[in-house]
């Protein structure tokens, strides 16, 4: 089994440590969930080049071959979820979602709904809401968004590595399958992102 060292790095022969401090933005005080992404790049190197410039990023990256890189400390927050989160209630528990406030929000135009839902959701704690940057780990899978239509399929090797990685994170942070999300479930992203990623 892997270990997590004092710097928040996952120590195991399967993980190559390639930390980019430019994508770390303050402390990550708790880890309640995992969000699975795709990079919209053809290679891991293209993502590393982007990480050198700072900004958005995630804690792990899985290359096409299945090679796992840790790119940020598990003690640090990364900008990987997005600015606005969706309503967990609307997306999952639709029957329990009727409230005067939600009815009012759903009558707004779409762009305003996004803002109002985010405001409402951030008053809640996980798991009543979807995960946010400050309580989740991000895993990027190398894969390009093609022809303004869909992300390329996650490879078998990538899914094998993803399963190993989430298993390790389950153990270290007392998580389960229900705490792992595809990026478009949580925030407003292209629906095919990570749609072919698979885990148990």
């Amino acid at each position: 089994m892997s270990t997590v060292d004092k710097n928040g790095m996952l120590i195991d022969p399967k993980v190559t440590l390639k930390r980019y401090q430019h994508i770390e933005h303050g402390p990550l005080k708790s880890i309640h969930a995992i969000v699975v992404h795709q990079t919209d790049t053809l290679t891991a190197q293209q993502t590393f080049n982007s990480y050198n410039g700072g900004g958005n990023g995630a804690h792990f990256l899985i290359d096409k071959t299945g090679k796992i890189y840790q790119t940020a400390s598990l003690q640090k927050r990364c900008y990987h979820v997005g600015r606005r989160i969706k309503s967990r209630c609307l997306e999952i528990n639709k029957k329990n979602c009727s409230s005067p406030e939600m009815t009012k929000i759903l009558a707004m135009r779409w762009a305003q709904q996004v803002i109002s839902i985010d405001k409402l959701e951030r008053q809640k704690n996980y798991p009543d809401r979807f995960p946010v940057n400050s309580d989740s780990v991000g895993i990027e899978i190398v894969g390009k968004y093609i022809d303004d239509k869909k992300y390329e399929a996650v490879t078998h090797a990538q899914n094998t590595s993803l399963q190993w990685l989430v298993n390790e994170l389950y153990k270290h942070f007392s998580l389960s399958k229900s705490d792992v999300y595809r990026h478009p479930q949580v925030s407003y992203k292209q629906p095919s992102e990570a749609s072919t990623a698979a885990w148990k």
Binding site: D40, G55, N56, Y79, G82, R83, R84, R109, W110, A111, V114, Y145, D148, P184, S187, Y188, K189, Q190, P191, E193
Partner: peptide
């Protein structure tokens, strides 16, 4: 992807760029 919300609805249409026909989409976001 990183900085804008992906809206589930859009209008679409046609335009010309350098005399060539093109398709476009504008999303609600």
């Amino acid at each position: 992807h990183d900085h804008y919300e992906y809206a589930p609805c859009y209008i679409e249409g046609t335009l010309k760029y350098q005399s060539k026909p093109c398709d476009w989409k504008i999303r609600a976001g």
